[in-house]
Design a protein around this nucleic acid. Structure first.
Lengths: 233, 233
DNA sequence: CGCGCGGTTGATCAACCTCAACCCGCGTGG
DNA sequence: CCACGCGGGTTGAGGTTGATCAACCGCGCG
């Protein structure tokens, strides 16, 4: 992980923020059902959202109908900061979600009056940017196998998988594919292959357990290089 | 382009900002030679940089030595906001560059005292995030041909190619490959193919002219979908 | 001159896509 | 109750795109 001091709270998209501050914890928290949209691509950007619980996916659509998921986000993520006048992503709940909707004007006001808030906001977007760049690296250079390994580890961490490495996949195979730039069939094949090799086990389609995290990590970007290459001095 | 009201000033990475404000136009502007690094991956993040002129590339390296360029940036881009304690990208000048280095503490101070500055900064990172997500979509779903078309159009716009569609490519074939997730050979082949079909002409290796921008645009994400899909109402 | 670097081109190969079949669980309606 | 359809997942066979490996060219430079 490129970002030290603070776990990234989502993949490719949002990131952590001090949840439940500056608004009180439950004032204005709204529930969103699975498959409901928080917003669509092209909608007027009226609000910024803070995810309180649950998972959403952020995606873009090309004219030919192809879709690319640019990120998943869970509790703590702030959504909508990448857009200006109109949302440039669609945002759909993939589990039941509780979220806080903050009008954009309010964001401006809060930023002006509360330096700490503005600071947090900037850091938050910065992290999202870092995560997005990391995702670019993943889908740009990695093989299907590496992509999947990277993905499983990230999700496991986000789900707070314990020492046992057990967690629930909050998304379908198709979503994983659209996120990693792979077809559903490829995801499926590699998942069964990982099982066959004893690296993971899947008690059910959406429940996963990492048996050999070490191997997966090695396979994954397993580590981007953290240190500088030789300096020209 | 997903971002309305304001041209994106780079691809996948930085974006525009009011250049030459809040510091005076030439106070502290430093020159950087081609192939010199502004910073390396893992370096302590001491400064944020504003590009005044020239081009830089932002990249990440994986342990297996593969590199992915996560963005190019030119005049107006602010660099280093995606990082926290340490730079999570390397940043190298690919042309002679003039840049402004702002200590991170100064950024904090300026943000606190100058609401307008903080606002600009947030918008700037937001745009970079939008551009990064766009890049994710490009390398995730598009074919080599589509990627190249998308890339040429973006670069042409950034270089301010006029009606004639003429511009100088500021980077090598290899950099284009590392940005698009393709090999040099593939870039080379597709470029000559584009020429053979009369879509572009290349008077020299680094000088390009778009003859049939229309075709390239159609080929490219040519348009992400701007409007919302049918609403569930 | 000789070398190295970057670009182009060709031949081959394999990773991943595509298309198609099949399974399973579930909700719906006869 | 069962038949049915549907959506999502898995598996198989075959095709295509882009990677790989290798040769060659042109150019700048010591």
């Amino acid at each position: 992980m490129c970002i030290a001091g603070g776990m990234i709270r989502d993949i490719g998209g949002g990131s952590e923020i001090a949840t439940g501050r500056s608004e009180g914890s439950h004032r204005g928290v709204r529930p969103v059902a699975t498959h409901q949209h928080l917003y669509y691509e092209g909608d007027d950007r009226t609000h910024v959202f803070v995810v309180e619980s649950g998972w959403v996916k952020l995606y873009r659509t090309l004219i030919d109908g192809q879709r690319q998921i640019v990120g998943f986000a869970n509790a703590g993520s702030v959504l909508g900061l990448e857009s200006e006048d109109a949302y440039c992503n669609g945002c759909e709940a993939i589990t039941p979600v509780a979220m806080l909707a903050i009008p954009v004007e309010r964001i401006r006001d809060l930023s002006r009056t509360d330096a700490k808030f503005a600071d947090d906001l900037l850091r938050q977007v910065g992290r999202q940017l870092g995560a997005a760049q990391r995702q670019i690296a993943t889908i740009g250079v990695q093989s299907a196998e590496q992509k999947l390994a990277t993905f499983l580890i990230s999700i496991a961490d986000l789900c707070g998988a314990g020492a046992g490495g057990e967690f629930d996949l909050p998304m379908r195979r198709g979503d994983m594919g659209e996120f990693l730039g792979l077809r559903v069939e490829t995801i499926s094949r590699k998942m069964t292959e990982f099982q066959r090799r004893g690296w993971i086990s899947m008690p059910s389609v959406y429940h996963c357990r990492l048996l050999r995290r070490d191997i997966l990590e090695e396979l994954a970007d397993g580590g981007e290089i953290e240190v500088s290459p030789v300096r020209c001095a």
